[in-house]
């Protein structure tokens, strides 16, 4: 699948924003993050800014962005529509939670939990958009939704640690970020292992129905240059590049941030925010590459008609 930059920016930025919103919504009422208004403003402003930037970026993917509001109508059948509805609804408790905290000085547990529930629901809907697509075997995979949720939680925890560190040292947060990173790394590894394993998938024989007569080979394509289908769905990345990019994801997205979180455990004073800052930056880069790879490694079964092999 063609890696569309607008969609990659959307899922990585909004993912981090929803992760930060969910963690703040859950941890603030529990007293695990700073309770002062300044921190509330910082955490929720960054979360909502990341979410809004991502949502705006997603509009650039559309052929007719001015009609985007129509996407809220088909939540009964469409995961994309559900994602849009969940994204907008989440703003209600999130803004109320922020307002009560920043202007009232009170951390509302109800509003925080509601905002967290909305954030998690939105990320699950994002994952389900991909998970529900049968023609793309590497997306129609049970690890896809856990991956989206775990990576949102992981990037959110890095941002939360960074923002808390700018304020004061919170010993719990580096451990939380470390745990979230470990969980996401395990789920990402499970996804990669799953898509690398041979799995039954359609063949040129079943796509044309000619498999009953023997081996099917494309003799002549319908057109001489690439059409929309091949540009959008026939994108493929060389296996050796994929392996190299997976190593970049592993190091930049998981290993280096985890080491920096360990350093954050033992630092204090003026430099305490530095490891958290570097970890968050490296992690966003790693997840950006991860999302690019998620597209580039996925093949659509329509390529079977053009002599390709999905899976």
């Amino acid at each position: 699948m063609h890696p569309s930059l607008s969609v990659i920016f959307f899922t990585t930025l909004s993912g981090a924003g929803y992760g930060l919103l969910a963690l703040t919504g859950i941890l603030a009422p529990l007293g695990a993050v700073p309770q002062d208004r300044r921190f509330g403003l910082a955490a929720l402003a960054v979360a909502l800014a990341l979410i809004a930037a991502g949502l705006l970026s997603s509009l650039f993917h559309l052929g007719r962005p001015e009609r985007a509001w129509r996407a809220f109508s088909q939540w009964r059948s469409s995961w994309l529509s559900r994602e849009g509805v969940a994204a907008v609804i989440t703003f209600v408790p999130a803004l109320a939670f922020a307002g009560v905290w920043i202007f009232g000085g009170a951390v509302s547990a109800i509003l925080g939990f509601l905002a967290a529930a909305g954030a998690i629901t939105t990320v699950v809907c994002t994952g389900m958009i991909y998970r529900s697509l049968k023609p793309i075997p590497r997306w129609h995979n049970r690890w896809v939704v856990p991956n989206y949720v775990a990576l949102a939680g992981m990037t959110g925890s890095a941002w939360l640690l960074l923002l808390a560190r700018l304020d004061q040292v919170q010993p719990l947060l580096p451990l939380l970020a470390l745990a979230a990173t470990a969980a996401a790394a395990i789920l990402k590894a499970a996804y990669w292992r799953s898509i690398d394993a041979p799995a039954p998938s359609p063949t040129a024989g079943s796509a044309t129905g000619l498999g009953r007569l023997g081996t099917v080979r494309l003799f002549e394509a319908p057109h001489t240059s690439d059409n929309y289908l091949l540009k959008e769905m026939g994108f493929r990345i060389a296996r050796k590049h994929a392996a190299k990019l997976r190593r970049i994801v592993l190091i930049s997205g998981f290993v280096a941030p985890a080491l920096l979180f360990c350093i954050a455990l033992v630092t204090s004073g003026a430099l305490a925010a530095l490891p958290a800052l570097v970890a968050a930056a490296l992690m966003m880069l790693g997840v950006f590459v991860e999302r690019w790879l998620f597209f580039a490694e996925a093949q659509h079964v329509v390529t079977l008609y053009y002599g390709g092999s999905p899976a």
Partner: peptide
Amino acid sequence: ELCIGCKLCSWACPYGAREFDRDAGVM
């Protein structure tokens, strides 16, 4: 008139039946 050109339908079709019209911005 309702299509926003998100291309998701073309991803959902195994048979390559839907194509995006770049000029019109719709499927």
